[in-house]
Design a protein around this nucleic acid. Structure first.
Lengths: 341, 341
DNA sequence: TGTTGGCACTCTGTACAATAGAGTGCTAGA
DNA sequence: TCTAGCACTCTATTGTACAGAGTGCCAACA
């Protein structure tokens, strides 16, 4: 733990650096920060100590100091005052969630856009993974002599769509019967256990088609386990990173991460697993994001956590604002998803 | 039309500039290009003329020339030799389209990734818009006392999912009856005219629910007309633009365009409407893309054009390669989509 | 008449030195 | 324990000189 004065100095440095992006020197802290009432010389010696302890970094001998990841971490954990959204932004969130959004997917996509506009950072939303949801509708239709599509409606309101091959000789009637069989036997089942439900077949004449469907279903479910919610990652506002970083290389690195959706998913998941809501610089162990911080919040439906939202920006971001924004959007999203009950 | 020699010089300059990104001087053309057999002095005077006619630009007095948009245009239309893909890339495309892709959406998304990797540019795929497709399945299920979801399966294999409000007093049985009604009365109808089909209701007791569904359906269809295929734009490889442009501002501009999906859609649509497959720099009338070219190709299903693919890169891109790649991927995609019949 | 070699000219990029400015660490004194 | 002062270090900027690349023009030539 840092003593009172060191804390004040660190806070001053982080705040100033966040707003100016320039290394801050002892004179600036002494002159412009009302929270520190000692001379620049004293601040200098404290700063030297803070650097020795790893909270600050000096880019070169005659420059001011900038916070290290550890410094930001201490700032976030102990020095940052809880932020509040401005009235305009508060209004924006409210309006967003009171307008109708058609499909859940669209809403989540728009939510990432909302996060991006509110914070001027990259907004990320990871979609709800079906799992504990139950099947509320099932239908099989033929599209061509050899192919068809199997559609499941889940209690979450999501629709799962699986392409299947239709065995030779399966006529329209057989398909309809199979469809009815699915509807009868799978509705009410847990989505996760739908596959096993098809093990014991009570209608032998349907066996051929059902086996095809079962294996396609298993394949689809396995795939979504390995690559969880592959098509449920929404990223928006990537252009904002060009505001934070002047070097094209840094921009490239960050973009290349954002393009790999599974990376984004695991990244955010790891942060939540660690039990935190902020991950700073090197903490998330991905070299290309060494200059970035990520702020996340989970969202739930009916008390069950179903997804994650977050923003990604430079380590010198306004953490309290970011945390407040992510928290409020997460809550609103949770409310919105659960209200349908 | 340019005479033989001017053509050769322009071709040499475009080719060299594309591979080096440096303004090319008369000496380089004379020395390294086998297609031009005159002295540098002669080339100089030809270059001066080409500049006067608008094909070349001189960044400053003592620099070489770079092609103007008009220069690139002439190059693409008259000087470029039709390109072929390398064996590795050819193999990559082949493999891609012979592996199974589960949902169409996923396949299109992966196709944008394929385009990006093949060309090292930004890959864009605009999804098929349902329209002339017919309804092959319809189902209505209740999710909560007040809400439900209406699902249509289309002959394209796509699934449309519409959230609806359920009127008070509609019990489970009524919903099931309505669902059956939809199945009976809408299957076989054109997707575009499904709404009208619901005008004359033969089962008065279902009227309340059906009217709700009808208005939700109309709203959803209208929305997708105004903002065609809003959730069917797939962009991948955005990080590649950092390879082409060193200035962060340029990168920002391009990213900000790519983030606005409707802009991307209209942009590509305009190019196709103009009857071309390449749009160079200022031709697409979007200032932020002044340094970019776009190469597009349509793809079809069952002879009907249903969508567009394309790549976006710097004006100094390898046009013949780009054209070849986009063409082959477009064809393969068409084949793949149509084979299911 | 078209082509070419030669030459003066222009502009950029780089290397180098000098200088101003910001900031530090250290020390002696209150 | 704090602070004022000072010597020192490093960066960023400015100015200058110079090499390099490229041009336009002209006179000579085929």
């Amino acid at each position: 733990m840092l003593d009172e004065r060191k804390s004040a100095i660190l806070r001053a440095i982080v705040n100033q650096y966040i707003s100016t992006a320039e290394p801050v020197g002892s004179t600036h802290v002494a002159k412009y920060d009302p929270g520190v009432e000692v001379s620049s010389a004293t601040i200098r010696s404290e700063m030297a100590q803070l650097e020795r302890e790893g909270y600050l970094i000096q880019p070169h001998t005659s420059a001011g100091r900038i916070p290290s990841d550890k410094g930001y971490r201490y700032f976030v954990d102990h020095l940052s005052t809880p932020g509040r959204l401005g009235p305009t932004q508060r209004q924006e969130v409210k309006e967003f969630f009171s307008t109708s959004h058609f499909a859940i997917e669209t809403m989540l996509h728009d939510t990432s856009k909302l996060l991006a506009t509110l914070t001027s950072q990259v907004g990320v939303v990871i979609g709800a993974v079906p799992g504990a949801t139950t099947v509320v509708g099932a239908q099989l239709v033929k599209l061509s002599p050899k192919s068809g599509v199997l559609v499941f409606i889940l209690s979450s309101g999501d629709v799962e769509r699986i392409e299947i091959e239709i065995p030779d000789g399966a006529d329209e009637i057989l398909i309809q019967e199979t469809s009815a069989y699915f509807q009868k036997c799978l509705v009410g089942a847990k989505w996760g256990s739908a596959c096993e439900k098809l093990d014991e077949i009570t209608e032998p004449q349907l066996e051929g088609v059902i086996r095809n469907c079962q294996s396609a279903l298993r394949e689809a479910q396995d795939r979504s386990k390995i690559n969880p919610s592959s098509n449920h990652v929404f990223v928006d506002g990537a252009s904002h990173i060009t505001d934070a970083f002047g070097a094209v290389d840094t921009v490239r690195n960050i973009l290349s991460i954002l393009e790999q959706q599974y990376l984004v998913v695991t990244l955010l998941k790891d942060i939540l697993d660690r039990g935190t809501s902020v991950s700073i610089g090197s903490e998330h162990g991905e070299a290309r994001l060494a200059d970035c911080s990520i702020v996340v919040a989970p969202y739930s439906k009916d008390g069950e956590p179903v997804g994650t939202i977050g923003i990604l920006g430079p380590t010198r971001m306004k953490y309290s604002e970011a945390l407040a924004t992510v928290a409020i959007v997460g809550n609103q999203l949770t409310d919105r998803l659960s209200e349908t009950n």
